[in-house]
């Protein structure tokens, strides 16, 4: 029991600090698109990185 509690506390401590309001993944990404050309570049970079890492995972 104590072990489980400690594990839960550890998991809690390791979790990144979150806001009380869920910003929503889609709404986070759209802010990049809405920040003009430079924001779009960042958005494309983010999707590119995801694509590359997906391909790597697929190859493995």
């Amino acid at each position: 029991m104590t072990f489980l509690l400690a594990l839960a506390l550890l998991a809690g401590a390791a979790a990144p600090a979150r806001a009380y309001l869920d910003p929503g993944s889609g709404s986070m990404l759209v802010q990049l698109a809405a920040a003009g050309f430079a924001g779009l570049v960042v958005l494309i970079k983010l999707y590119w990185k995801r694509l590359v890492s997906d391909i790597r995972k697929f190859r493995k």
Binding site: S25, G26, S27, M28, L29, V30, A35, G39, K49, R50
Partner: peptide, 25 residues
């Protein structure tokens, strides 16, 4: 676009903030 992305990323549980930061935002 926001409606579309909200639908597409509804189940996205990746560390998006980390990714956004890393991409240079």
């Amino acid at each position: 676009l926001q409606a579309r992305l909200q639908k597409g990323h509804a189940a996205d549980d990746a560390d998006l903030r980390g990714e956004i930061k890393e991409a240079g935002f």
